[in-house]
Simulated scan of single mutants.
Amino acid sequence: MAEKFILRVTAGSDYVVKSHQVVPVNSADTIIVSNEHMDVELNVRVQNYRGLPRNSPETSAYFSTAPHDYNKDQYSICFRFTPKKPAATVDQPDSKDPRTGDETTEKPAINGISAQDLQFGNDFDHPIRDRLPPGFNTALSIVKWWIDPGLDGDAYADEPYLYGPALSSFNSVHVGKGEYDPKKGGLFFEEGGDEAGLEARRAIGAPDTSKERMKWALKKESKEKWVFEYGKTYGVDFFNPYLDFGDFSLKLPGFTLPIMKYWDGQGLRYVLRNKSTENTYLVILFSLYLKEDVNEDGSLKPAALAKGPSTAGLNEESRMGMETEQQPKDNSAALEEARKRFEGTRE
């Protein structure tokens, strides 16, 4: 069924798809997404890409660069962002009572977004509980155990979501503007920072390596120390080898979920947001459209724009062949197999 559809990636600062920009997937060219809360510069890469815009590169130099060649990464959401100070924010240089000069117990407002609040993850407009495949909870357990232990949410809600703290979710976090190199596919961030960024990380005890930082960031006291400061730029990269957009499947060791069999037409949406204020900073949407709804120049036909990603043909075909030969009969056995295989990849 996948051959009937074509993938389109868009991005914006909110959920209104009509206001989104089409992302030039696998191009070194970035797009800029801005609102009153944040400025973002974005690259998206997808291995074996056969989507819009027409004639997009099937791959990116990014995937031939370490560590992505070794990891066999399948996609990357890479961006740098600069939080903006809210108009109502008033600087509080110290915590002394201006009348007496005595120290007060009230803490000054932080000059940025707390790592306790900045989240990255997926959400959906409509329920997916009736479309979740056999073995979904096992797959989620594997993902939480190895890929993102901070992931939390409710896949069975009316508006499902799975968010994780951004600080522990991103594979690479660079404090500073980082690198832009067309020979590496555009934006390219390794764990660390510029001189000031490294100093700031070490001052709060943040580890230098990606794996250790992700583990460290799961602790409440670590997130309390880290602030994404207003006016400062941070580079982040989210990548993995598990989600294959070529055949639309989630591939974990010993476990495969053929996504198209259970898809209900909703796009796969990644969101950068604030947990406390519910402000949205960045929305990246991977949508499938029927090929017949796309013009030769890659634009969507008016009817497709009006109705959004098509669900035509899904009710019957997506339920055909939903046999579970790829799904484990024993969830505990699947988890143990995944654990053994993953352990073999540890450094």
Results as ranks from 00 to 15, higher is better:
I113V: 15
A115N: 10
Q116A: 07
L118G: 00
Q119V: 00
Q119A: 00
Q119M: 10
Q119W: 04
F120A: 03
F120K: 09
N122W: 15
N122F: 13
D123Q: 15
D123Y: 02
D125L: 12
D125M: 13
H126G: 12
I128W: 02
I128L: 07
R129I: 10
L132C: 08
P133H: 03
P134M: 00
P134R: 06
G135W: 05
F136K: 02
F136N: 05
A139L: 07
L140K: 11
I142A: 01
I142T: 08
I142P: 09
I142W: 02
V143R: 07
K144S: 06
K144D: 03
K144W: 04
W146E: 04
I147Y: 07
D148K: 08
D148M: 04
P149R: 02
G150Q: 06
G150I: 00
D152L: 06
D152S: 15
D152H: 14
G153H: 01
D154P: 13
D154E: 07
A155R: 11
A155I: 14
Y156Q: 12
Y156I: 09
A157G: 10
A157T: 04
D158N: 15
E159G: 08
E159L: 06
P160G: 02
P160V: 00
Y161K: 03
Y161E: 03
Y161Q: 06
Y161F: 12
L162A: 07
L162R: 07
G164M: 04
A166D: 01
A166C: 04
S169H: 11
F170E: 00
F170G: 02
N171E: 14
N171M: 08
S172H: 12
V173T: 13
V173G: 01
H174C: 12
H174T: 08
H174I: 02
V175K: 11
G176Y: 02
K177N: 12
K177D: 13
K177W: 03
K177E: 11
E179V: 15
Y180F: 15
D181I: 06
D181C: 11
D181Y: 03
D181P: 10
P182W: 01
P182V: 06
P182G: 06
K183F: 08
K183T: 13
K183H: 08
F188I: 03
